[in-house]
Design a protein around this nucleic acid. Structure first.
Lengths: 152, 152
DNA sequence: TCTTATTCCGAGTAATTTAATCGGATTTAC
DNA sequence: GTAAATCCGATTAAATTACTCGGAATAAGA
């Protein structure tokens, strides 16, 4: 029940890019340095985020990544789904309901299925309620402190 | 972000025991058969549940497991925690807050930590809201149908 | 007392998933 | 032309999960 590094690094990278978007495209090398993660590994993650339409990449020298959407419209849930696929604590939630379901076939009557359904919904609702934009404003105060040269 | 088989089987076993508690101690052999899981594997899970105080075991022939508490006071969250430890999507939530935290040291000021904190809290709240007793009553209607000989 | 049914326990292993790593191709600013 | 980037696919290493196995201890019932 841990969140994978994909999701954690993905969120960290998106937040990093959002924070530095005023200085032009953000190169992965810098993200990797600031967030202390492997640049090569980040590459993989970014390709998922790009395919999902959350960032746009600019190749070549001075290139990098920029947000492809308003940060207010990108949620942590979106990022997690881009990194890991649908939020579903058990596989039977993904199969279509009814007799075709290869798992138990009982679909929504299954009380155990409903446990994990509820769990998944509450995770999604929590993560979807957090936008990149809100994370950036939460980060703002400490950034000001930092600019004054104080220790964080 | 999948739930482990430990948690799934653990919940299934507890529910099975709760349902069959009127017929005396419930042997794992029967649970394993009904739930279609390895008896040996279940053994391991039951020892966690016993140590956590949710079931009591009776050894020897005609032995088995019985609930150690009122099913209304046992939640799915309790079972999951017994199987997997604290519900914490990231490890830094487990470390004590403040400078001693070996992860980022920033404790509650860390915006990313707060994401996963919120996620963990919403999982816990969802799972803690479901008691074994409520699952049993949800299961009741289909049981009646079953007893009338209808197909479930 | 013997047999059988059961829990208990710890060690070992197989399978899967996660988390990277690596090498090189492609693109573009300067 | 060169350096700084992204892009892409393959491979590998590490960790976790999901079991399996063998046998000891316990207790009921004949």
């Amino acid at each position: 029940m841990k969140v994978s590094t994909k999701s954690r690094y993905g969120v960290a990278a998106m937040l990093d890019i959002a924070q530095h978007c005023n200085d032009g495209p953000v190169a992965l090398r810098n993200v990797a340095e600031r967030q202390q993660v492997s640049e090569h590994y980040l590459e993989q993650l970014m390709s998922s985020l790009r395919n999902a339409g959350y960032v746009r990449s600019i190749r070549g020298a001075q290139g990098g990544y920029v947000l492809a959407k308003d940060p207010a419209t990108i949620t942590v849930g979106d990022i997690v789904r881009a990194m890991e696929g649908p939020i579903a604590p058990v596989d039977c939630l993904l199969a279509e309901k009814g007799p075709a379901n290869p798992y138990c076939g009982k679909s929504e009557q299954c009380v155990r299925r409903n446990i994990w359904l509820k769990m998944g919904e509450s995770i999604a609702s929590a993560l979807d309620s957090i936008s990149l934009a809100s994370l950036c404003t939460d980060l703002q105060p400490s950034k000001e402190v930092e600019e004054r040269g104080e220790q964080v």
